[in-house]
Design a protein around this nucleic acid. Structure first.
Length: 99
DNA sequence: CTTGTGACGCATC
DNA sequence: AGATGCGCCACAA
């Protein structure tokens, strides 16, 4: 399961973002948004963690890289609207494909 | 089995 | 916008 979630995150195209709920659903586990958070915390260092946002496109990462995530996204072309991301523009529609 | 934890989500205050 | 409470699910101890 952790693997499935990881794969989904790795599938997020550059310049696009996905929410925890979407990642979990795309991985095949709706309502497991929290596991996504745990996974990121465990091996986020090996993933494009900056593509994962909270609901509405908010940066929930309030640890140490909160600002860094913002910079990274902007660097990829993601446009922000205040403290949020233009979901409608970069919302990556993940597909529930097992593999 | 029980408890605590986790980069959450939503409703409510 | 921020804090709080409840719900949700998996995993580690």
């Amino acid at each position: 399961m952790e693997t499935a979630i990881v794969r989904v995150i790795q599938r997020i195209p550059r310049g696009q973002v996905a929410t925890y709920g979407q990642v979990a659903a795309a991985a095949g586990y709706p309502r497991h948004h929290r596991q996504v958070a745990q996974v990121l915390g465990r091996c986020g260092d090996a993933l494009p963690w900056h593509r994962v946002l909270g609901s509405g496109g908010q940066i929930k990462t309030r640890l140490d890289g909160g600002l860094e995530q913002r910079f990274r996204l902007e660097m990829e072309g993601v446009r922000f609207r205040g403290s949020r991301v233009n979901m409608a523009e970069h919302q990556s529609k993940l597909t529930v494909r097992s593999r």
